[in-house]
Design a protein around this nucleic acid. Sequence first.
DNA 1: TATCTATATGCATAATAGTGCATATAGATA
DNA 2: TATCTATATGCACTATTATGCATATAGATA
Lengths: 113, 113
Amino acid sequence: MHIDTFQALADPTRRRIVEALRRGETEVGALVDQAGIHQSGVSRHLRILNDAGFVSVRPDGQRRLYSLRPEPFRELDAWLAAYRGLWERRFDRFAAALEKRRQSPNTQRGRRT
Amino acid sequence: MHIDTFQALADPTRRRIVEALRRGETEVGALVDQAGIHQSGVSRHLRILNDAGFVSVRPDGQRRLYSLRPEPFRELDAWLAAYRGLWERRFDRFAAALEKRRQSPNTQRGRRT
DNA sequence: TATCTATATGCATAATAGTGCATATAGATA
DNA sequence: TATCTATATGCACTATTATGCATATAGATA
């Protein structure tokens, strides 16, 4: 069942959860610590994120490990693409950014808050 | 006043309005036709989009012409960038294509508008 | 001036969404 | 078996949000 992608990201607590998941597979308890709300709330947010396709779950003993799925991000990117003309005159600027990235490969792994 | 970017996009009617605005400056009446809700509702959605930085207004006689602003889209793109690693394979293929393009003298460079 | 058109806003209402508490479920361990 | 841990869910409550109706405001035109 595909709940709305944008609405899933509309809630700041859910975004915090998603951002926490960038570090990789995470159990619910750890997400509760970061979220700042009750465990039951986190559980429900995870359900919403799951319905929207943002996360997948894997049981590990009594825990459940959540991780990010690429699809909705790709979807979002595709939606956004229609608006790139608003701020991007030339493809070459993007190409330049890529080129820079290519030269320093270790730039964006699990950083940022 | 900067209202939340994601929340502004969470409402489907607002997204319809934004998508309609891709065609360029539009008066409120035309947006009402597309939105399928009452004029007052559209007006309020436009206020929200304006507060979130998505649109700017320009008076034209008794009408008000709304148009898209690039900033929040850029913002969204920046947020999304942190998740590009999730579907990097496709990304790299695209990068390779761009690289090829860059090396070929056939490319249309310097097409500034 | 009065009046018409286009858009914005106050108010009430109904639907939705986020939250915590208590409890249910599922798996582990004694 | 009983019990402990981790996560999910039913329920009630509250806050927020989208909406329409009526009206206000602003500009145009007679």
